[in-house]
């Protein structure tokens, strides 16, 4: 039995050691300890949490950053934009990600660094004959006033309304643009992340959904049977987001406490530089010029 005893003892010790750490903070966020003066070697770990729309992009940027600075680790966790704004304040994360602009009360506490632009567009299945919907029609579909596609020039079938789960900024922006209240939306399916919405619409000829333009474009490009509807007459393309004519555009932000320093500053500078524009385009987002 002695071996088992030692093991138990070790575990108990490990437990105590972990117990004395500061509660509610991750000991692993050592970004502040890192040095980032010019020419000095960057070292440490950055924990990034927040928007699932930003996460794939930031993860790719993080990988490239790690290649440049072998002593650095960038951990990306998804968790929605509101987490992206809250986590840097509580210290759970070094950087947050938010796929929307900061609200007024938030802007007083944290700072946003826009790394790309994206939009939100309505998507339909490719088999659906409908090619355009007015803002009022979309609102009527989402509130259940229009229930079948023939009311908007489509087939007899009932409309499958795909909505986002609570806490997602895509939901907030969509509701605000169409002046809807969350409680009035009559959804048939509630989805979490972009891909689940794309998958639901791709697998259902009578579904309507709304997702990030970037995610929708790259899905359509890789062959998913979906189409992006124009918003108020403006086609949902990367180009129209770039030139500012697309009505439901949004910034993709990195969020920090005001005046970031050290490793955080270095990472933000890198993420906002031209060196990552190819990664941003790869994800069908619009780099900020």
């Amino acid at each position: 039995m002695p071996r088992a005893f030692t093991l138990l003892g070790l575990l108990a010790l490990a437990g105590c050691g972990a117990g004395v750490g500061t509660p509610n903070a991750k000991p692993a966020t050592k970004a502040d300890a890192a040095h980032a003066a010019d020419g000095e070697k960057l070292e440490g770990k950055l924990v990034v949490t927040g928007s699932s729309t930003c996460a794939p992009l930031v993860a790719e940027i993080g990988k490239r950053f790690e290649q440049r600075h072998p002593g650095v680790r960038v951990d990306v966790q998804t968790g929605g934009s509101s987490r992206g704004v809250a986590d840097p304040q509580t210290g759970i994360a070094d950087l947050g990600m938010a796929s929307r602009a900061l609200k007024e009360d938030e802007a007083r506490l944290v700072q946003a660094h826009t790394l790309a632009l994206d939009g939100i567009c309505v998507i339909l299945n490719k088999a659906n004959p409908v090619t355009e919907l007015g803002d009022a029609q979309v609102a009527a579909i989402y509130t259940g006033k229009i229930g079948t596609w023939n009311e908007v020039g489509g087939s007899e079938a009932a409309i499958t309304v795909v909505n986002k789960a609570e806490g997602r900024s895509t939901l907030e922006l969509f509701l605000r643009y169409f002046e809807l209240k969350s409680a009035n939306v009559k959804a048939s399916v509630v989805i979490g992340d972009n891909e689940q919405g794309l998958k639901t619409v791709a697998g259902n000829p009578d579904a309507i959904g709304y997702v990030s333009v970037g995610a929708a474009e790259s899905a359509a490009r890789s062959g998913a049977p979906i189409k992006l509807l124009p918003m108020n007459g403006v086609a949902a393309t990367v180009e129209n987001i770039r030139n500012g004519s697309f009505p439901l555009a949004r910034p993709l932000n990195l969020v920090t406490l005001p005046n970031p320093t050290g490793l955080k500053k270095a990472f933000i500078e890198f993420a906002l530089s031209k060196e990552v524009h190819d990664l941003i385009r790869e994800q069908s987002f619009v780099p900020v010029e």
């Binding site: 692993a28 891909e195 689940q196 998958k199 790259s218 899905a219 890789s222 998913a224």
Partner: peptide, 20 residues
């Protein structure tokens, strides 16, 4: 102490949150 992704989480993430 590093965060890490298990196989089952990978399947979940790929099928729900990654286009293609």
């Amino acid at each position: 102490l590093d965060s890490a992704r298990a196989l089952s989480i990978h399947i979940y993430d790929l099928s729900m949150n990654v286009t293609g």
